[in-house]
């Protein structure tokens, strides 16, 4: 299966700007479907970004993050061609991981 994670990491001098878009339903557990049944909670709880074996950004998420979540941040110390590793784990224990080259 194709990765659920799409990342763009672009280097601008010493600063690397990272944008990530993840495919995930992010069901909060407060919404009912057309039949009036509650859709059980299903959302990403933790998302981490690693550069050179070091954690550069970590998100703890609840069900209040929008479907197909987007996040943007920036960090120092990386250069073009370096790899960035992105991983998430959801409340059902599902995970996905990908690596992206910094451009």
């Amino acid at each position: 299966m194709a990765s659920t994670i799409r990342v763009r990491a672009s280097s601008n001098g010493d600063i690397t700007e990272v944008q990530a878009l993840i495919q995930h339903p992010m069901d909060s557990g407060f919404i009912k479907n057309a039949k009036g049944e509650t859709i059980p909670p299903h959302f990403i709880q933790q998302l981490t970004f690693e550069h050179d074996g070091k954690n550069v950004f970590a998100a703890d998420w609840g069900g209040g993050i929008s479907k197909d979540p987007y996040v943007k941040f920036a960090f120092k110390g990386a250069k073009k061609g370096d790899e960035l590793k992105i991983s998430w784990v959801d409340n059902k224990g599902a995970t996905d991981t990908t690596t992206a080259k910094i451009q």
Partner: peptide, 17 residues
């Protein structure tokens, strides 16, 4: 909604939806 951990070297600037 969310908590973001910012290690040293990461800029204190975050965008999300």
């Amino acid at each position: 909604i969310a908590k973001y951990n910012i290690p040293a070297g990461t800029l204190p600037s975050v965008a999300n939806r």
